[in-house]
């Protein structure tokens, strides 16, 4: 069994939701990203989502946009992100999903990307701007290299689209909590429970909910309903505020620990 499936299985056995942490790779530097990944593992995070910085992130709110700008300014590239994963894998078994826009992967070459990502120790890939209809060229190379394709579904997805995502996808199904870009929101969507039920009906994969979840209270609410909770912008915003300093990893560990605790039902 691969690392992603195992992580969700362990969480289920422990009667809690899996905690998925998102950070932008290369923010503030790729060396710090490796430290942060270790810190997140110590905090008890189950899955790490690494954002590949892109110049035009249309699915992201201001927090992640600024993180991508910082990462690009520090010189982070897809090449560099894969090299960082390789270093991380020397002593870290945390499941890793790359969260990326299509263009850097296309430019890298899809087949070469899939081979290099698998060799580096990536477990899954999530494309923010490739819907099921356009997944054709990406699907084969990922599959041949045993990489899970993590599919996004949203409150606007029809039942047919959710099923297609369930068929194509691996690892877990990522349910976007509400229509919108990434970023903290004061409240959760009123339809969340219904949307989680719809995603469950469409697929046998574990369902993790993300976008807009930032506080331990929100995490606890979602953890009661879903198999996994994704927190991104809240952690990214913390990293942005601290900047490139030696205390960064410890601070992120403290911050993430509180969120992880909230996953226990």
């Amino acid at each position: 069994m691969n690392r992603l499936a195992a992580a969700f299985r362990v969480a289920r056995r422990e009667k809690r939701a899996a905690f998925v942490a998102y950070v932008t790779a290369g923010d503030p530097t790729l060396a710090r990203t490796v430290e942060i990944a270790h810190a997140l593992q110590r905090a008890g995070v189950d899955v790490l989502e690494l954002g590949v910085p892109f110049s035009d992130p249309i699915a992201d709110g201001p927090t992640n946009q600024r993180a991508a700008e910082r990462a690009l300014a520090s010189g982070a590239t897809l090449n560099g992100v894969l090299a960082a994963v390789k270093i991380l894998r020397e002593d870290c078994e945390l499941p890793i999903v790359l969260f990326t826009y299509a263009n850097p992967v296309l430019r890298y070459d899809i087949s070469r990307f899939a081979e290099d990502a698998a060799a580096a120790g990536v477990d899954g890939v999530l494309f923010t701007d490739v819907p099921a209809e356009e997944m054709g060229p990406f699907e084969g190379p990922l599959d041949e290299n045993s990489l899970d394709l993590v599919m996004l579904v949203t409150p606007t997805s029809t039942r047919r689209r959710m099923k297609a995502a369930g068929r194509l996808g691996g690892g877990f199904l990522y349910l976007v909590s509400r229509a919108g870009v990434t970023g903290a929101r004061p409240d959760l969507s009123a339809d969340l429970a219904d949307n989680i039920r719809a995603a469950r009906r469409a697929s046998s994969l574990p369902v993790a909910v993300g976008f807009g979840i930032s506080t331990p209270e929100q995490v606890a609410k979602v953890a009661a309903l879903a198999d996994g909770v994704v927190v991104g912008s809240a952690i990214v915003s913390h990293i942005g505020a601290l900047g490139d300093c030696d205390e960064l990893a410890d601070e992120v560990e403290k911050f993430a620990s509180e969120l992880v605790q909230a996953c226990r039902r």
Partner: peptide
């Protein structure tokens, strides 16, 4: 083609 976040497909 149509390379957009899932929310925009509908």
């Amino acid at each position: 083609g149509r390379f957009v976040p899932e929310t925009l497909m509908a």
